[in-house]
């Protein structure tokens, strides 16, 4: 029983980690929390769903379309909105307000287009479970865990071991110095938004397979965001660790205590983190520059 819950928790945490690492990446570069990131994930799920049901594409192609769609939306946000706000030299708070407005637009726009009903993916992954001894684990959960892990490893490789990753890390460290040294900051930002969007798209499709697709599914971004705060704002590895811990904690609370307490635990964890160690598990404490 415990082992089963643990694996389920890690599987949920893996999906949170895909979104949370996007928050962390963007925060590390721009120093703001991209509230619209959860909606990017939702858009990805809808694009994939529409590709399957309206265009009758085979599922793997539809999934690619969904990931691409999410990446495009994410890039759109950066190119046409966030960049202009930065160029206006507006305070960071304005980026957050704009992101909040964007998430309202996406959520309600999708609701107007497709209605607020829950929509199902056709069964692509069998809804069976593997039994070993007295534990039963859903095939979907195992697949989801494997896919999240693979996507996160690819991202980690891109950031740590490629020239692109070096550029990103240099911008995160100091964007002004990086631009003096010939790094094209805007290009790096665009690439990071694409990467974060693609990861969110993967998460959106996995969530859609598990819990169906609906306009407010982007609210899961809130959980992922909390995970990234818990792990330390701006730290990708911290975000992944935080997401796994939150995923496991949620499943355990729901399994052993009371499912209505699940969210309370998550939010209390958030406030406790901020009060005890605002820099999170793996964050570096940075004083805000005036």
């Amino acid at each position: 029983m415990f082992l089963q819950q643990l694996i389920n928790g890690i599987s949920v945490g893996g999906v949170y980690a895909l979104i949370a690492s996007g928050y962390a990446l963007i925060y590390s570069l721009l120093g703001f929390s991209n509230w619209a990131h959860g909606e990017v994930c939702m858009v990805g799920a809808y694009v994939a769903l529409m590709s399957v049901s309206a265009l009758v594409l085979p599922f793997p192609l539809a999934a690619l379309a969904g990931i691409g769609g999410a990446a495009l939306i994410s890039l759109f946000n950066e190119r046409f909105l966030y960049r202009r706000i930065r160029e206006n030299k507006s305070p960071t708070m304005f980026l957050m307000i704009a992101a909040m407005g964007l998430s309202t637009v996406f959520q309600n726009g999708v609701m107007l287009l497709f209605g607020s009903k829950f929509q199902m993916f056709p069964t692509v992954i069998p809804i069976t479970s593997i039994s070993a001894g007295n534990i039963r684990i859903g095939v979907l959960d195992v697949m989801s865990l494997a896919i999240s892990a693979a996507a996160l490893i690819v991202m980690e490789f891109l950031i740590q071991h490629t020239k692109f990753g070096l550029g990103v890390r240099s911008v995160a460290s100091n964007s002004y110095t990086a631009s003096l040294l010939g790094v094209n900051v805007d290009k790096m930002l665009a690439a990071v938004f694409i990467l974060a969007g693609a990861l969110a798209g993967v998460a959106g499709i996995l969530l859609g397979l598990k819990y169906n697709v609906f306009p407010t599914m982007g609210n899961v971004g809130l959980k992922a965001f909390i995970a990234s705060v818990f792990g330390g704002l701006g730290s990708v590895r911290g975000a992944i660790l935080g997401a796994l811990i939150i995923g496991v904690a949620e499943i355990m609370v729901a399994g052993y205590l009371n499912s209505s307490l699940r969210d309370l635990i998550t939010f209390s964890l958030l406030i406790a983190t901020l009060l005890i160690k605002p820099s999170g598990l793996m964050g570096i404490h940075v004083e805000e520059k005036a």
């Binding site: 704009a98 909040m100 407005g101 998430s103 309202t104 637009v105 726009g109």
Partner: peptide
């Protein structure tokens, strides 16, 4: 939807 657009 429109409030969101207006804010952005």
């Amino acid at each position: 939807f429109f409030y969101g657009l207006a804010v952005v």
